[in-house]
């Protein structure tokens, strides 16, 4: 079984991503979790590079590995809470664990059954990473949807800001006193 360099690299990075994700979820310390998940996001970004999608990889690195990780880190700092000790590795509940394992097994089995489709045509020489094609597809072909999505995201962010504010209404005070 011969494996070319790109595949080999993918396998390594993929294993790294899985391990990083697993460590993030199993870590006892939430700061460690955030660090691991940053690694997880970064390794997925590398996967995108390997898939000849450098724009996507950059976006992944910037948004996920950068922004989201830092956002999480800030949140953890604000809250200053440790992960509950009982949620450590030993605290795994068997039924849900088995459930997740089953779903994983089914998905892996399904992956094996997918026929070997031919890969898509390569990007043109003038645009080796298809960035302009992507831009065209994203902003011209689906521009309307993107705009709509933007509004949705914006309103969601406004809602998030509202939620995160320090509330000083009497109702909130009452809830806190309870």
């Amino acid at each position: 079984m011969s494996v070319d360099a790109a595949t080999l690299a993918f396998l390594l990075v993929g294993i790294a991503a899985f391990l990083a994700g697993a460590l993030a979820l199993l870590s006892r310390e939430i700061v460690h979790t955030v660090i691991y998940i940053g690694g997880f996001f970064a390794s997925l970004g590398v996967v995108y590079f390997l898939l000849s999608a450098p724009f996507l990889g950059l976006l992944q690195l910037a948004v996920y590995a950068g922004a989201v990780t830092i956002l999480l880190m800030f949140a953890v700092m604000v809250i200053k809470r440790r992960i509950f000790a009982r949620e450590a590795v030993l605290g795994i509940k068997a039924p849900t664990f088995i459930l997740a394992l089953l779903v994983g097994a089914v998905l892996l089995d399904l992956a094996q059954r997918v026929p070997a489709y031919a890969s898509a045509p390569a990007c043109p020489a003038s645009d080796p990473y298809c960035v302009s094609l992507l831009a065209q597809n994203l902003f011209l072909d689906n521009g309307g949807w993107l705009l709509l999505l933007g509004f949705v995201m914006l309103s969601a962010l406004a809602g998030a800001v509202h939620l995160a504010r320090e509330w000083r209404t009497p109702a909130v005070r009452k809830i806190r006193e309870d």
Partner: peptide, 13 residues
């Protein structure tokens, strides 16, 4: 969520 997943699993199976 667990019950949702159970339903999903049953569907898939």
């Amino acid at each position: 969520a667990a019950w949702v997943v159970v339903g999903l699993l049953a569907f898939l199976v």
